[in-house]
Simulated scan of single mutants.
Amino acid sequence: MLAKPVRTILLTALLLLASPARTDTPSSAAQAALREAVTQFLMREASRNSGAVTVEIADAAIPRNAKPCDAPQAFLPSGQRAWGHTTVGVRCPQPAWTLFIPARVRVEDDYLVAAHPLAAGSVLGAQDWEVRRGDVAALPPGTLTRPDQAVGRTLRQAVPGGTALRSNQLLVVQAVERGQRVQVISHGPGFQVGNEGIALTAAADGQPVQVRLDSGRVLQGIARSGGRVDVGQ
């Protein structure tokens, strides 16, 4: 029979082996908080696009010696965007520190590809494209994701079959020409006021444009097809 001190030592050792290892150390808790802050920030920013958003952050991207922070603040450094391969900054107000964490954001969505080789000057119709689904964050900027972005538009360059259609391949159709007389619609909480004026710049649909009202006041609004400019909300 084992002596009592020996039995006690063996029992203690068995209990230690059976107990799960603790992982909620200050460092791992700080790493988890950083991962959550970056993930939520990128999910919120990337969700402004249509499509299903997935955020990937490698374990090695989170510093092992990360310091705890009660209120980490995520932000996009200059030149970064909230999709594809990107880098997110995280700053802590107290204690003050800033670090940068690489991540990848996937946006699963439909996009348009040329159904066959398209010649420059072609006017696009439904027979000219196919809809595919994939990670649009990995595609070139300006890739078209909806048929209404392409139908009736004219290609400014040839496009090989199977190639994603992009906005910079299309001729720009000016919704408002410089010097054109336009209708100005001012919007506000509970009201809408119409005026007229002269466009000081040319702009495509959805682009900003400056207008001088008949009163002489200069406003900036958003150009709309049909010679209309929206100002305000």
Rank of each mutant, 00 (worst) to 15 (best):
T86L: 02
T86Y: 00
T87Q: 05
T87G: 04
T87H: 00
T87W: 04
V88G: 06
G89T: 07
G89Y: 03
V90N: 02
V90F: 00
V90A: 01
V90S: 00
R91D: 04
P93Y: 04
P93I: 01
P95G: 01
P95W: 04
A96P: 02
A96W: 09
A96F: 15
W97I: 00
L99T: 06
L99N: 03
F100P: 05
F100H: 12
I101P: 00
I101N: 03
I101L: 05
P102V: 01
P102K: 04
A103R: 10
R104A: 10
R106H: 13
V107A: 06
V107G: 09
V107T: 01
E108H: 15
E108S: 14
E108L: 14
E108D: 14
D109E: 15
D109L: 03
Y111R: 06
Y111L: 02
L112K: 08
L112P: 01
L112I: 07
V113A: 09
A114C: 11
A115F: 06
A115M: 06
A115T: 09
H116T: 05
P117E: 06
P117D: 12
L118T: 09
A119R: 15
A119T: 14
A120C: 01
A120M: 06
A120I: 03
A120E: 09
G121F: 03
S122P: 10
V123Q: 14
V123W: 06
L124E: 08
L124W: 11
L124G: 04
G125P: 07
G125I: 02
G125E: 15
A126P: 05
Q127W: 08
W129R: 02
W129T: 09
W129L: 10
